[in-house]
Simulated assay, not measured.
Amino acid sequence: MKQKIVLATICLVSSAAHADSSVTLYGIADVGVRYSNGLNASNAPITSHSAAAVSSGVNNTSRWGLKGQEDLGSGMATVFQVEGGFNIDTGAAAKSDKLFDRISLVGLQTDYGTLTVGRQATIMADAISPVDPLGMRYASFNPNITLTALSNTDFGRHAFGTQYGTSGYNDSYYRLDNMLKYSASYGPVKARLTYSAGEVAGNSEALSTSGAGLSYEKGPFVVSGAYMNFRNSASLGLDAYTLGTAYNFDRLTVKANYGYNTADTGANSQTRTRVSSLGVSYLIHPALLLTTAYYRAKRQSTGFVEDGFDRVFTYLEYSLSKRSTVYLEGDYTKWKGDAAGVSSGQANDTRGIGVTLGLMHKF
């Protein structure tokens, strides 16, 4: 089956030059050698031990995809995109159950906006993208991606433990199946609307999602925000909000964001999570970029001790070319409350530190 898919992909790309539509093959290959203390190879807290690992996606998630469009005339075009993540250190797919786990959509683009249908990142992710202090780097460890945009809400001694929306996974709702997303620009303002059908027979509310986002971008100034409501199979709700801003002072860029979500995890239980973040990027010279970012996460949950963490990142990136970048990354995490959890009945270290030397190539 996989061989047939690969063959079909090759045929599609090779025939693109003979079709009216344009098709582009693209991707990112990112790998680094990482040393950490108080964290395991997956960056989960452990007892006071160090770990060495070869890690994929410490700067940008390794991925490959195809995208294209066909001009229909009169300002209209059909568009499509499929994209899958992979771990370059092992060659394994990021999600074993989905070939295109990141994006799988088709849509219609007009002068009045674009409507896309399929598996897509939520408008929470869209809203955070231009204002995340880390620039959406290190997706698996970036609190604005994991907590504000809900790609991995499980940390510490408890988790939501249920699927909200149509992501297909417990505690991960960054991308949703069956999504309709509409976006339109009006000068410097961009509006987004989204709905995802839960497809539960007899209960149209279960596993459904809806939301709206708005951003303003003019010159060096950006402000961006969004709201989404998710439902689980029992129609319990999760409400998520995000609001951030960015300003570019020539070689210096400052970004800040605040995220908040509240989830009904049971008839009489609720979890509230807040994430505050601030960061700066400074272009030392055209090929050398320094980025630092600080995140504070706080969580309150019925029946548990209040917990959270503070996390700091630093990236020094040197562009070898337009497509290739070598980088040095460092991070420090201070866990609070019970957030560090336990391993084999022993409390984990409340501090974690990591350093990565990596190479990223875009194609």
Rank of each mutant, 00 (worst) to 15 (best):
228 M>W: 11
228 M>F: 14
229 N>G: 05
229 N>W: 01
230 F>E: 02
230 F>C: 06
231 R>Y: 10
231 R>A: 04
231 R>Q: 07
232 N>W: 13
232 N>M: 13
233 S>P: 03
233 S>R: 15
233 S>I: 14
234 A>R: 13
234 A>I: 03
235 S>N: 08
236 L>K: 07
236 L>N: 12
236 L>G: 03
237 G>H: 09
237 G>M: 06
239 D>A: 08
240 A>I: 13
240 A>L: 03
240 A>H: 02
241 Y>P: 06
241 Y>T: 08
242 T>R: 00
242 T>Q: 04
243 L>H: 04
243 L>N: 03
243 L>I: 11
243 L>Q: 03
243 L>W: 04
244 G>R: 07
244 G>Q: 10
244 G>V: 08
244 G>F: 05
245 T>Q: 10
245 T>Y: 06
246 A>T: 04
246 A>P: 02
246 A>Y: 00
246 A>M: 11
246 A>R: 09
247 Y>A: 04
247 Y>M: 09
248 N>Q: 13
248 N>Y: 06
248 N>W: 07
250 D>Q: 10
251 R>K: 15
251 R>N: 13
252 L>C: 07
252 L>F: 14
253 T>G: 04
253 T>C: 04
254 V>T: 08
254 V>M: 13
255 K>T: 01
255 K>Q: 09
256 A>Y: 05
256 A>F: 03
258 Y>M: 07
258 Y>S: 04
258 Y>K: 08
259 G>C: 09
259 G>D: 10
259 G>T: 12
261 N>F: 12
261 N>G: 05
261 N>I: 09
261 N>S: 12
262 T>P: 01
262 T>K: 13
263 A>E: 00
263 A>C: 10
263 A>M: 07
263 A>F: 05
264 D>I: 10
264 D>N: 13
264 D>H: 07
265 T>R: 06
265 T>D: 02
266 G>I: 14
266 G>N: 11
267 A>S: 12
268 N>I: 05
269 S>I: 08
269 S>N: 13
270 Q>E: 09
270 Q>M: 10
270 Q>C: 08
270 Q>V: 09
270 Q>G: 10
271 T>N: 06
271 T>G: 03
272 R>S: 12
272 R>P: 04
272 R>A: 12
272 R>Y: 09
273 T>E: 09
273 T>G: 05
274 R>A: 11
275 V>D: 08
275 V>E: 04
275 V>M: 07
276 S>N: 14
277 S>R: 07
277 S>E: 10
277 S>W: 06
277 S>G: 13
277 S>P: 12
277 S>M: 11
278 L>Y: 08
278 L>P: 14
279 G>R: 01
280 V>M: 15
280 V>H: 00
280 V>Q: 03
281 S>V: 00
282 Y>S: 01
283 L>W: 04
283 L>D: 05
284 I>W: 15
285 H>K: 15
285 H>C: 01
285 H>V: 04
286 P>G: 07
286 P>C: 06
286 P>Q: 11
289 L>Q: 08
289 L>M: 14
290 L>N: 10
290 L>Q: 07
291 T>I: 05
291 T>K: 06
292 T>W: 00
292 T>M: 14
293 A>Q: 01
295 Y>N: 01
295 Y>I: 00
296 R>N: 15
297 A>K: 03
297 A>M: 15
297 A>T: 15
297 A>D: 03
298 K>Q: 15
298 K>R: 15
298 K>G: 02
298 K>F: 05
298 K>S: 10
